[in-house]
Design a protein around this nucleic acid. Structure first.
Lengths: 244, 244
DNA sequence: CCCGAGCAGTGACTTTAGTCGCAGCAAGGA
DNA sequence: TCCTTGCTGCGACTAAAGTCACTGCTCGGG
């Protein structure tokens, strides 16, 4: 890593965040003057749900995980944010405590801006507030998507859906199919899908038995993408009775 | 119904909406000039998810239901909004289609403001944008709550939770306990809890068998509020093995 | 090179959820 | 009054989800 002048670094980091992409350099410097740089190690907790802290966190580098955890040790991931994303915007606007916890998936660099600083900045630059609304709106959509999945689909379908998505984005074609590395341990996937580890282990095994995929350690090769996609809209059991 | 001067009616209606509560009468009139009055009958659909319409709906009177529906006829209610609330704010800010459908629970009066009108109003009055952020934030919190329920609790617990909440708000003390009228049919409750009608019928029956409540038609009398509350944080089965 | 920690893969159940089909009831219209 | 229509209450199942207890595997450090 090359040492860089701190101020310039912060300004360029802010500019990279989509949220502020159309601000002038002067405005960026203004905002940067109020920002505090922080660093979190992998696995570290930024804050827990219910905490009454304040301020906006903007991700410069790394990856953060927003999640809910239950008494029984279960977890449900609400979102994973990468560079340019932000976290903990809600308390900035309504002052209420965080509705969820956030931890670092990888080592992460964060810019922290206090609640009052950001509020006054929004009042001075109304278009930032509108952009922020779009960001919060995007998050809202994702939450609606999660609710839809939890309420209407089975773990099997969610898993199939995840595999299809991964195949389309990160899949590498091989001789027999599309190979995708699993993003994280079964436990982590379980948290994202709102279920438990065992089901994340068993369901792919079942898909393998059906000839749709091939499982080897942390790599899954999709053999029959159409077949996998078909699982997504099976409103109930039709091929359960159809097979033999 | 007394006939009222239309303009004054709209202005007072807007002022009543918490969203605009601290605007001057002049500003309200300005906004009202762009608002269109609409009426929807009970059960009528304002729009469906995926529709690419545009504009903010503000509820003057009545009640709206925001919900997601699945291929298999299932439904999941995301929110119910009353007078002063608003609906369909997302597409106003990001231009994307509605993530859910909205229908009228009762006959409802709505003020409709087009997307561009509201955007420019926000730019002119930054504090309105901030308020809007708080409103969207509140909705986000509620969605997180729904996710938490769906992902961590059983239907039994959700139902018990609902009964406790109702008992505290609308319950009437009677000789033996707290009587609460069910808000809607079993089908509607099932939609709110993200399950099916039968479970909304059976679970209270089971609670009755356990002596916690008494079911009669659409009225439920809570006999043992502490007992009912205890269900909420039973991380798993302790009294299943404990009884008899 | 061995050891321990964490992760993946089962088997055997238990508990919840959801499906199907049907019966009884109450209210309102023809 | 009779007859539909919509809502509720079951019973009997099927299918998912989740729990518990173990077995290996792999990888990295002492």
């Amino acid at each position: 890593m090359l040492p860089m002048p701190e101020q310039g670094n912060v300004v360029s980091a802010l500019g990279a965040a989509s949220l502020f992409s159309n601000l002038s350099p002067k405005e960026l410097r203004l905002l940067a003057a109020h920002a505090v740089r922080k660093h979190y190690a992998q696995g570290e907790l930024l804050f827990s749900e219910g905490d009454a802290r304040k301020g906006l966190h903007i991700i410069v580098g790394g990856k953060l995980r927003i999640f809910k955890s239950s008494a029984g040790g279960r977890e449900q991931v609400l979102a994973v944010e990468g560079p340019g994303g932000s976290v903990a915007e809600l308390p900035v606007f309504d002052g209420a405590p965080y509705p969820a916890s956030v931890s670092a998936v990888e080592d992460s660099q964060i810019l922290f801006i206090s609640r009052s600083d950001f509020r006054s900045f929004c009042l001075a630059h109304p278009e930032v507030a509108l952009k922020k609304l779009a960001v919060v709106g995007a998050r809202l959509r994702r939450l609606v998507g999660i609710i839809e999945e939890l309420s209407f689909t089975t773990v099997r379908q969610r898993l199939a859906s995840l595999l299809v998505r991964l195949a389309q984005t990160e899949g590498k074609r091989t001789g027999h199919g599309i190979e995708i590395p699993l993003p994280g341990t079964h436990q982590e996937l379980a948290h994202q899908l709102g279920t438990v580890r065992e089901l994340v282990s068993r369901n792919p095994m079942r898909l393998q038995a059906e000839g749709l995929v091939q499982v080897e350690a942390r790599n899954i090769t999709v053999l029959d993408l159409p077949g996998l996609t078909a699982i997504l809209d099976s409103s109930s059991r039709q091929f359960l009775t159809a097979r033999d």
